[in-house]
Design a protein around this nucleic acid. Structure first.
Lengths: 77, 77
DNA sequence: CACCAAATGTCCCGATCGGTATATTCATGC
DNA sequence: GCATGAATATACCGATCGGGACATTTGGTG
């Protein structure tokens, strides 16, 4: 539960399903390719920040920077 | 107040200075190029996630995902 | 003026990303 | 158990872009 890409990916997936969206739907909404979304959710560490932000934005999520070990409650449950 | 790249960049710069590091020093510590660090701090939106995480890690910072408009106190203010 | 930190331009290699077809996984129904 | 359909994962290709190193320039300061 740090900020490894895998965690972000899971948060994305959880949020996406929470909104009842499929990968193609979210990908379209975020303006990215489905392939990218798949890899993002699977925790690919080398994704581009802007595309990731686009996805998070489409999900109503946001990135925050904070000191390590300062996690809050589950964001997207 | 979202999570635009510029915000992250500023957080990085502030934290770096707070630790009394120069860009080359932090870049070396994070295992990235100086060029990258400069662009990251300046808010380049297309940086790669893994490199950004490496820098944040070197600074003792962490990336978190949360609902929009849920920013906490500045990390290294 | 010299010095230090920072920003920028160029060159070049390598990796990412997008679209599609295909495989694989999953859940559900018969 | 097996079939059916949907969602998701992977491979290929080509085009684009990131980022490392170097040198240079700019800006601030003693």
């Amino acid at each position: 539960m740090h900020s490894p890409p895998e965690t972000i990916g899971q948060a994305v997936r959880t949020a996406r399903k929470g909104m009842g969206l499929t990968q193609p739907e979210l990908a379209a909404a975020a303006g990215v390719g489905v392939r990218f979304l798949v890899e993002l959710e699977r925790g690919k560490p080398t994704v581009r920040l802007d595309r990731m932000l686009a996805v998070l934005d489409a999900l109503g999520l946001e990135l925050q920077v904070g000191p390590r070990g300062h996690n809050h409650a589950g964001p997207a449950r």
